[in-house]
């Protein structure tokens, strides 16, 4: 009971603020509740297959294999794999975090994790086709090109700023998540 209250305390507080928001600005009532339902639907749709896949990944892929392909010392092959893995994924960015946790648990290197997150956020292939249709191929391709550079820069910057000790703590935490 106590742990439930502790874990969901923030949820209750935010829900209370949400109710106050609705009561204070009736103008937004309809849109906010509509958005809540729409986003809940998206999450409920996207989350089950992602978590099933990461459960399977955790059970079936041996750690040594993941270390070999995406671990420290996997070099350019690991980077490319992380990039492709993220680019062919489906779903919103918050779907990438639990997958990253499993990859960390399996021993993928921190740089490759950051590249994976970057690719998932911006270079998703199905989205690129869609973007190209809506905003023009010039817009989409220019953004793809600069974003590939960006993913690499951001990965290098974060890797440099976070100490190895902190990285170890993150890995230990990721291992506990599953």
């Amino acid at each position: 009971m106590n742990t439930i209250v502790r874990r969901y305390g923030v949820v209750l507080a935010v829900a209370l603020l949400f109710a106050i928001f609705l009561a204070t600005w009736p103008l937004y009532q309809h849109k906010a509740t509509g958005m809540l339902l729409f986003q809940a639907e998206t999450m409920l749709l996207v989350i089950p297959p992602i978590f099933i896949l990461l459960g399977l990944l955790d059970v079936w892929v041996p750690r040594e294999q993941m270390m070999r392909y995406m671990g420290p010392g996997s070099g350019a092959k690991g980077v490319l794999l992380a990039f492709l893995f993220g680019s062919f994924a489906a779903g919103p960015l918050y779907g990438a975090f639990p997958v990253a946790a499993v990859l960390m648990k399996k021993g993928a290197s921190f740089t490759n994790i950051l590249i994976f997150i970057g690719a998932w956020s911006t270079t998703k292939l199905p989205m690129l086709l869609f973007e190209s249709a809506a905003l023009g191929p010039r817009f989409a391709l220019a953004r793809l090109a600069i974003d590939i550079v960006g993913i690499a820069l951001i990965a290098v910057a974060i890797k440099a700023a976070i100490s190895p000790k902190e990285v170890d703590a993150l890995y230990a935490q990721a291992a506990r998540m599953l």
């Binding site: 923030v10 949400f18 937004y28 906010a32 989350i47 978590f51 099933i52 459960g55 059970v59």
Partner: peptide, 22 residues
């Protein structure tokens, strides 16, 4: 394991849901 990972993150997910709606 999938269920455990999901349940572990559920509180944060609910908070995000409310924030996004507003």
């Amino acid at each position: 394991k999938a269920y455990k990972a999901f349940e572990g993150i559920l509180p944060q997910l609910l908070v995000v849901l409310l924030l996004v709606s507003v």
